Structure formats: C-alpha cells, structure tokens
Amino acid sequence: MQWAGSSSARGPVGRPAGVIDDGARDAFLDHLRSGVADAAASGGDFLLDLAAVDHMSAGALMALTIARKEAITSDVTIVLARPSPALREVLEISRYQLIFDIVDDLDGGRD
C-alpha cells in the first residue's frame, strides 16, 4: 500500500493506493487515525479517496471500522470517496454503506 495526503474544502484527504492487505492493516490504521486527527483539528470531515485502491482485505475493513469508532468520539465523519465498482461491491456486501457515506466524487456529493 502507498499513501498520499492532500486537502479539500471539506477537510483532509487520504489517498491510499494499491492493495491494502492484512500486512498493511496497521499502517493503514495509523494513516486513518492521522487523517481523523487532522479533520478534528480543522473541524472538517476526513475523505478517504479510494480511486487507486485495487483491493481491501478483511483486516483493512476492520481498520476502517476501528477508525470510524474513534472518529465518532472526535465528531469527525469519514467519507469513502470514489471506490471502483469492485471495491464498492465489497463495501456493500460488508454493509459499510450503512455506517459510512460512500460518494462518487471528492466534493462529497452523495450517491
């Protein structure tokens, strides 16, 4: 997994790329926590741009769940943006659309 960060009008943006497998879970969670902390400091949301993610393992999905629970205590919303059709299917099978906003663009427009 690779990671890059940027910002948007809505808040910080995390940009993972490649495969987020169980071996990358801890690093992924560290990046998520950092993004949530930045969003809390700026009073915005944390956007996770998934456009360059090829696959997420069950461990990576668990990291998202952990980060979401921590984000709630900081009054931060984690928004999952631009997942590929295959990744969107994984997220929907896992019912993540019930606990995350999943959007098709970085402006945060809902589907």
Rank of each mutant, 00 (worst) to 15 (best):
L47D: 02
S6E: 12
A86R: 14
I20G: 04
R25S: 12
G11L: 11
I93K: 07
A71T: 03
S84M: 09
R68H: 14
A39F: 02
D101M: 14
I78M: 02
H55T: 12
A63Q: 02
A58I: 08
L80W: 07
D26R: 15
Q2P: 06
L50Q: 01
D22W: 09
I99Y: 06
F28K: 03
I20Y: 04
D26E: 15
R33T: 06
G108T: 01
R15Y: 11
V103L: 06
L32S: 01
P12T: 00
G43Y: 05
A27H: 05
R95S: 12
D22T: 13
V79S: 08
G5L: 07
H55E: 15
F28R: 02
P16W: 07
A40L: 06
R33I: 06
E92W: 11
D30E: 15
M1G: 09
A39S: 07
E70R: 11
D104I: 03
A27T: 12
E92T: 10
S7T: 15
R95T: 12
G14H: 11
I99T: 13
M1A: 05
L50T: 04
R25Y: 07
G109A: 14
A41L: 06
R110H: 12
L50C: 11
S57C: 03
S84E: 03
D26I: 11
L47Q: 08
G5K: 08
D45H: 12
D111V: 15
S42I: 08
F28H: 09
S8I: 05
D22C: 12
D49W: 01
S7N: 13
G44K: 05
A71E: 00
S42P: 03
A24Q: 05
G11Y: 07
V19T: 07
D22S: 11
A71I: 01
L64P: 02
I99C: 14
A81G: 07
Q2S: 15
S57V: 00
A51N: 15
A17M: 12
Q2D: 15
I66K: 05
S34G: 14
M62N: 15
V79H: 04
G18R: 00
I93R: 08
G18P: 00
G59N: 11
L87P: 05
P12Q: 00
P16G: 10
G18V: 08
G44D: 03
L64W: 01
D107T: 08
D105V: 01
D107L: 11
R33E: 13
G109Q: 09
L64V: 01
A86T: 13
P12S: 04
H55G: 06
S6P: 01
L64H: 06
T77V: 05
A86M: 10
A17W: 09
M62R: 13
